[in-house]
Nucleic acid binder design. Structure first.
Lengths: 250, 250
DNA sequence: CCTTGACCTTGCCGCAGCGTCAGGGTTTCT
DNA sequence: AGAAACCCTGACGCTGCGGCAAGGTCAAGG
């Protein structure tokens, strides 16, 4: 048989067969005088074995191990770990589909893929187009994957549901073009600190170890994201929160 | 922030970030005087978005579409087809796992991955170490994927369960070193033709269209796999079977 | 006889999403 | 001052082939 014939017989492409030759998975057959590969039924049998194994999802080198090793023992072993691998993948896919379903049904309906706990939080907040509110929510999304993130989101709910928080955002907005020594800064920072629910402090992991604003330049970068007067507010607010943390036995 | 910092913050590797820069998914930030990339919180927010999308299983170019397009419409769309894709993958994996389970529990316990119908057939055949029987089974495995394969396997069961078929294999074995004009050839061929169950003939697709032994060199290759006298038997047997097919209105 | 079309040959690039060197500089801590 | 821990660019590696280029070969038809 020529390569196209055996390919059609077994149900693979001739390109794949040449590939198998190239990587030494299938032995090269003899050649006809014109250089064409001349396949025998033995090759077809081997190739069919290879096809069935790859269809099961084995990699080509695993197939090589199984085919080369005359001991049939290898195969059960490989098959076992293959099944475990497939089970893991199935689980992963299921997890992704679950998150997808949550996303598409959720309150953030398709606009932004956020973790479920944050989606719940954002769904509870009143709609606003305040720039700093928007920014704040983006920053919250950065907590995704950090240590106590879900707890923090949960603890923030009372604050988010309180309509008076909108007023705080507006006061922050108003500082967009203000000078860093604007007299409105200090009282706003104090009000912000006071507005943070006590539960949030409990949810902050005690050491802030490596996850987020460790010794990294995150704090500077965060401040740089605000106008000067706003940055000053944020700076003081963080100091105030730290003080509250300190006051409560860390 | 430097690249390692933002990477730790968002939870990706710095290599991945540079990759995103390279393919234009994430804009290059400004540089410090020493050439280090200097990231802002905006980058972190964008990067976190990217991470969440890739974790859902989107490809990087799909992520680019979603991130670039301000219209949120794109996302639902992409998410929809992503879910369909995942469902398909899940189904595929389930199918593979089902076949794997069959394999590992089946009678061919791990020695050879054959299609279920053939596994059933082989399980029903008496054990033998006849070389031609072994060869025959290998050839049967080549039918995997052909048109009426499952039906043929089913129709072969009565033949396979008949212990007298072992005697036929032995008579074939005995011809391994015989001459092609051995007198045992003709009667063996006749007995073989007679042993083929009528159901098998019905199961053979009427035209033998493209699948198997069409105009291809398969027949020659098959005969070349046997010793001369054996090949002669096979040749006559095939002729006999063809005649039976012809006799029965094809 | 010549052409056409369906085969065959080798060889190399491309794919997704980075990991992993190699071969440098910088900053920082001790 | 030296070592550790960062950063930089650039390039190859991985999987399982698909696709293309630039040809040879062969059977059938005009």
């Amino acid at each position: 048989m020529r390569i196209g014939e055996i390919a059609a017989l077994v149900g693979v492409t001739s390109r794949a067969i040449r590939h198998y030759h190239h990587i030494g998975l299938l032995p090269e057959p003899g050649r006809r005088t014109n250089g064409y590969r001349a396949y025998s039924v033995r090759h077809a049998v081997l190739l069919a074995r290879i096809r069935r194994l790859t269809e099961l999802g084995l990699g080509l080198d695993e197939v090589r191990d199984v085919v080369a090793d005359d001991a049939g023992r290898e195969l059960v072993e490989v098959l076992g770990e293959l099944d475990a691998d497939l089970a893991r993948q199935e689980e992963e896919i299921g997890e992704r589909r679950r998150r997808l379903a949550l996303l598409m049904a959720g309150p953030v309906n398709g606009r932004e893929p956020v973790p479920p706990a944050l989606a719940e939080l954002l769904g509870a907040t009143p709609a606003t187009d305040s720039p700093t509110a928007t920014k704040d929510r983006e920053h919250l999304a950065l907590l995704d994957g950090a240590e106590g993130a879900d707890e923090i989101f949960g603890a923030l709910r009372p604050m988010a549901e309180d309509p008076s928080v909108l007023e705080l955002y507006e006061r922050l907005d108003a500082l967009a073009t203000a000078s860093p020594d604007d007299p409105r800064i200090a009282p706003l920072a104090a009000d912000l600190v006071a507005a943070v629910p006590a539960g949030v402090l409990d949810a902050i992991p005690s050491g802030l170890p490596s996850g987020l604003p460790a010794g990294s330049g995150f704090a500077e970068a965060l401040l740089a994201d605000y106008a000067p007067a706003q940055a000053e507010v944020v700076r003081r607010m963080m100091a105030g929160v730290a003080a509250r943390l300190d006051g409560a036995g860390r």
